[in-house]
């Protein structure tokens, strides 16, 4: 398992760089967690950056892991491609502790990755990034004709949908018949 350092500070609790506001409120050292995608590449991300993800925030909020425990138990997201998870982690780091501007120029630009990115962001429940990604998707068809929209959003024609439905029914029928035959065989 390889590892990349995505955090903004080292794994050890960070030393405060500025004087605390008052003696009664010392600065809490930042904690880090580890996540990996389908490619098993582990990304180290601060809890502050992970707050963008409602899913991960909910998972870590009551864990109270030590640095060692966090490192030993990275969160696996096997349904997310490694490069997509990298994009998401980068975005979370860039927007750590900051509200997202209405026009976010830090969004990954690769259109070919947009579909997977949207699904990942939706799964990880990163609301602001999801809104921005959905905007990108919606913008793709601005001013386009239905024919162009059909191509851009890969929409099958009615005939194609009907053919696919027939095929699915046929397949389901075959599977059901196979199961019945297998059950009859078992009974014998």
């Amino acid at each position: 398992m390889s590892s990349t350092e995505q955090g903004t500070s080292s794994a050890a609790p960070a030393e405060p760089t500025t004087a605390p506001e008052s003696a009664a409120a010392p600065e809490v050292p930042e904690s880090f967690y580890y996540v990996h995608g389908k490619d098993k590449v582990v990304h180290k991300v601060s809890a502050g950056a992970l707050q963008h993800s409602a899913l991960i925030h909910g998972m870590i909020s009551n864990l109270g892991y030590t640095e060692e425990q966090a490192k030993a138990n990275p969160f696996p997201f096997e349904n997310i491609d490694g490069d997509i998870l990298q994009m998401v982690v980068d975005w979370c780091n860039q927007h750590k502790g900051k509200p997202t501007p209405p026009e976010d120029t830090n969004l990954p630009k690769q259109k070919e990755k947009l579909f997977d990115l949207v699904l990942a962001v939706n799964y990880l429940e990163i609301k602001e990034l999801l809104t921005y990604c959905c905007k990108q998707v919606a913008m793709m068809v601005k001013g386009k004709s239905p024919e162009e929209i059909r191509e851009i959003w890969m929409i099958p024609t009615d005939a194609e949908d009907e053919a696919a439905e027939k095929e699915a029914k046929k397949r389901a029928g075959k599977e059901a018949a196979g199961e019945t035959a297998a059950a009859a065989g078992d009974a014998k």
Binding site: F115, L119, C134, E151, W153, M154
Partner: peptide
């Protein structure tokens, strides 16, 4: 291109809203 109809329903709704 992007396969819009393969999005889950709630996500599709998010795109429609925009």
């Amino acid at each position: 291109p992007i396969a819009l109809l393969k999005f889950p329903t709630d996500l599709l709704g998010d795109v429609f809203k925009l």
